[in-house]
Amino acid sequence: MGYVVAGSHRIERCKHKNTPPPPPRKWTTAMAIIDKYTDALKSIPAPGGDGCHASLLGASTLGIMAGLTEQQILADVRVSIPSGKRRVSDREIIDAIKRARMDTQPLGEKSDHKPVSPRPRPPEPLIKPSYSDHLIQKGTGFTELDFINASPVPLIYEPQHDARLILETLYRPDDILFIGERYDTVVHPVSEWLRIIDKQGTAGLPHIVPNPVTGGKHPAQSRKPSFRCDAAIKSFRFCIIEFDNLSRAEQLAFWAAVPLPVAALIDSGNKSVHGWIAVEGVSTNQEWEEQIKIELYARRFIPMGVDPSCRNESRLSRLPGHLRAGTQRYQRLLYLNPSPKPKPIL
């Protein structure tokens, strides 16, 4: 048996038959770098003044030299950082990897590695799931009639009139709304919707987007322009809470006790009660993302069991006054308040 010595054209024979040939020099060098990389990962100090930031570059450089992908280096470094006085973000690690790539890559050479993206960290919940149980226990025994009697706007026992009542109470005549079937696209000013309802009732109008729209088409997630997508919202006035995992009695108990600025409670005509929560201080989709989707839903509502699909700004709710075909029950107003007092939202 023989082997070729790297850097030489001379073939040598092993002195002993059973002696395996040494590995190629390139391979042994790579293994040595991997060992150094592993040692560097183990040596990362706790963040917060002990040189953690500088050590990220050293470990990343060895990872690049060993031929590892940037995604692999990010994953390795992330799990190797011990607990310390501060949290090291993925962005800080990625910056170190990019710097290491620049330092080890020859000038003018293009990298074939795909850029690494930070993995989003889920926001820390501020509400424990047990808080929902506490509210339900506190509000147990509250009935639909109790809500109707407590409503600041008097409710009449003729649900056919609820559509006009909610439109006249919570909106201006020139506010533009979507009302209709799930896949309809028509929007009108409130004044026109009132005329339509007076003429033909609420047949074919089971849903409403509580937030007014601009009246024009905007790019939707499907990439098709839409009159009623999130980007089409003009006024960010309400967010919706709905439960899929609570009984009707538990939902009523929750709404009786929860400290939220409730503008409307709507019997869906089936199993659920939809709550419209008044929103203040939100004027853009970005602010909705930060204040509503993250701060309210991700950190407060969803940990309590609220349906997470309710969190977008163009979410459909049920239009009160519509007779639901599947159950032959009216979607009814249980509570209506045009001026809910601002409260600390949980």
Rank of each mutant, 00 (worst) to 15 (best):
V5R: 15
G7I: 13
G7R: 12
E12S: 14
E12T: 14
K15E: 12
N18C: 00
T19A: 10
K26D: 06
K26Y: 05
A32S: 15
I33S: 08
D35M: 10
D35N: 14
S43F: 04
S43H: 09
I44E: 04
I44K: 03
L62V: 05
I64D: 09
G67P: 04
L68P: 00
L68C: 09
V79M: 11
S83H: 08
V88P: 11
S89A: 15
E92F: 01
I93D: 07
D95Y: 00
R99W: 02
A100Q: 11
D103I: 09
K110E: 14
S111G: 15
P115T: 04
P115S: 04
V116R: 07
V116T: 13
P118Q: 12
P118C: 01
P122R: 08
P122S: 07
L126H: 02
I127E: 10
K128Y: 07
D133W: 03
D133A: 12
G139F: 04
T140H: 10
G141L: 09
D146G: 06
D146S: 13
F147E: 02
V153D: 05
P154Y: 05
Y157F: 08
I166Y: 01
L167K: 06
T169E: 07
Y171T: 01
I179T: 02
G180W: 07
E181R: 15
R182K: 15
D184Y: 03
T185F: 05
V190P: 11
E192N: 08
K199P: 00
K199W: 08
P206L: 03
G215W: 06
P219L: 15
K224F: 07
S226T: 05
F227Y: 15
D230L: 01
I233A: 10
K234P: 01
I240P: 00
E250M: 08
F254R: 10
A256S: 14
V258F: 06
V262D: 03
A264C: 06
A264D: 06
L265S: 02
S268H: 01
N270V: 01
H274A: 04
G275D: 03
G281H: 12
Q286H: 12
Q286L: 13
K293W: 01
L296P: 01
Y297N: 09
R300T: 01
R300D: 00
D307R: 07
P308L: 06
S314K: 05
L316Y: 09
P320T: 11
R324D: 10
L334G: 04
Y335M: 09
P338D: 08
P338Y: 13
P338M: 13
